[in-house]
């Protein structure tokens, strides 16, 4: 039989097919990413305890009323962009004088040493042993385990930080967002933005100093990395930054 030539497939409509697909993707997808501030809600408590006394110097209250006017620490604030500067001041004023008693209106810093951390871990381990031997309720033992985890976190952080001392802001230092029911969401979001900006700046500076990378890079790596050991490494770094500059934000439920 004679060799028959195979006719070429007509690819003229390929462009049409591709256009069709392209238009489909253009219509069903969007460029903008979903971006948000992630916050945790405190656990619901059944037993109401007496409120803990918190020193005035440890509280940074940011308030907004129903007319969307701002007040930071009792003073009227006209420029919402300045809140982050105030948050920075709140963190940094006494940072240099860690371990000393300073007479001003900002939270104090303390230092913890390697030996103190080790002593605490040993103490808690002994307590857990004693409680387990005595058959204490499980929730009390769990509470001790949580404490132990906190101290171990600090131990890891200090190792990463270098030296033998870890400066720590007062454990009660917190930022409060107090809005009213009618306050616009944009104001609420603005306060969150300003706090986030200040915290980012502080942690970023520390990350640059310690490892020469930006805080944003660390966070992205932690979120997108698949390698387990690498994730752990990045997590440790983030933990240290969180211990140095904890973001304790209290969102106060509005009453009116």
């Amino acid at each position: 039989m004679a060799k028959r030539e195979i006719p070429e497939i007509n690819a003229g409509s390929m462009a049409d097919i591709a256009f069709l697909l392209l238009i489909f993707f253009l219509v069903t997808t969007t460029m903008d990413k979903d971006q948000a501030y992630i916050r945790s809600i405190p656990k619901k408590i059944e037993v109401k305890n007496d409120p803990v006394e918190v020193q005035k110097r440890d509280i940074l209250a940011i308030k907004a009323n129903s007319q969307n006017q701002l007040m930071v620490r009792g003073e009227v604030f006209n420029d919402p962009d300045k809140i982050s500067d105030f948050v920075l001041k709140f963190y940094q004023t006494n940072q240099k004088s860690a371990g000393q008693l300073v007479m001003n209106d900002f939270p104090l810093y303390s230092v913890i040493t390697t030996s103190q951390i080790e002593a605490n871990i040993d103490k808690i381990l002994d307590e857990i042993d004693a409680m387990e031997a005595a058959g204490s309720p499980q929730d009390q033992i769990d509470f001790k385990y949580n404490q132990l985890a906190e101290w171990e976190k600090k131990q890891r952080a200090l190792k990463l930080y270098g030296g033998s001392q870890l400066p720590e802001i007062s454990f009660q230092a917190n930022m409060r967002i107090e809005v009213m029911q009618a306050t616009a969401y944009s104001i609420f979001a603005k306060i969150q933005t300003e706090i986030e900006e200040a915290i980012y700046e502080l942690r970023d500076k520390e990350a640059q100093r310690l490892w020469g990378v930006s805080y944003g890079t660390l966070k992205r790596k932690e979120a997108n990395e698949n390698d387990k050991t690498k994730v752990k490494e990045e997590k440790g770094k983030l933990e240290l930054l969180e211990i140095l500059y904890p973001a304790r934000i209290i969102e106060v439920t509005p009453k009116n």
């Binding site: 616009a184 979001a189 509005p254």
Partner: peptide, 21 residues
Amino acid sequence: SGLIFDIRKELQNINALTIAY
């Protein structure tokens, strides 16, 4: 914002404790 806090309370009740604004 009051509405946001209403939602927050509902989430707290069912122990869904992470919210994003």
